[in-house]
Design a protein around this nucleic acid. Sequence first.
DNA 1: ATACAATATTTGTATATACAAATGTATGTT
DNA 2: AACATACATTTGTATATACAAATATTGTAT
Lengths: 152, 152
Amino acid sequence: MKELNNILKTNANLSLPQATVINIFHSSIWIKDDFLLQLKPYELSLEQFNVLRILRGQKGNAINLQDIQERMISKMSNTTRLVDKLIKKKFVKRTICKTNRRKVEILITDLGLETLKIVDPIIDETEKNITKNLTQEELTQLNTLLIKLKNK
Amino acid sequence: MKELNNILKTNANLSLPQATVINIFHSSIWIKDDFLLQLKPYELSLEQFNVLRILRGQKGNAINLQDIQERMISKMSNTTRLVDKLIKKKFVKRTICKTNRRKVEILITDLGLETLKIVDPIIDETEKNITKNLTQEELTQLNTLLIKLKNK
DNA sequence: ATACAATATTTGTATATACAAATGTATGTT
DNA sequence: AACATACATTTGTATATACAAATATTGTAT
């Protein structure tokens, strides 16, 4: 892992498990930075954008906080406040569930949908750009390895 | 990527670039959580632990903030305050560089070294555990793919 | 020596996140 | 119905991080 040593400006002799872990962290960080750069003009954090997409996926049906959390990439402790911010931007609406008043019903607004329409292709492009160094087979391989890593 | 769909509780038809990006994020998060769980009893964040290791790598020589930042996995905007916290815990010392008073010299203390001695094997074990589902070859392959992904 | 730009760090402020406790609501048991 | 328990969300608090501005120091040109 000479390349990793370069990235971290170190001479340390990294074990394979060490290198792997650092490599994944490092990949995650540069990819995230890349996305944030693209999302910045729209004042959306990556998770906010992701939640908007989740809401759109409901196709007009409302969804509650728990279900949003389940679908989030990084399970946050405080989805309430994330949604608050989306409400402040008028991207989503929040109402109380009629059948179970403990639950909230969250729905994407037209403004939210329009914003997604603008941001989506940008994110698509970014995703393609991020992965362009690997062939289809290599990407599949990478995904397979990451899934296998997790499933213990 | 049926497994990814399971993890995210979604039916969305993820493209290969999308799946890859989400997969890397997801891997990074669960691995980080795993580490944090181990570091918790020592009240060290992952970056704090990492900086301690960087300092030890200096083998008695002081190092300044810039050089620490260069070696960090996630380049933080505010290493000052991270070091402040390590100082509060008496894990590191800070002095002003004699030759260039703009710079600070940061040095790990004996207490810092002792703490590392305790935490190191725990982290080693965690790293091994995290990667135990993959063979040596698979780990090498994973590292190679992640490096290739980055180098555009 | 003085002025100016470059460098290294610190500080201020806003926002994000983690975690625990609090609130309000629903459900099951007697 | 009364009570305890579980559930879903919200709030409070501490800490983390991002970003910009401020401070202090050094090197360089005049």
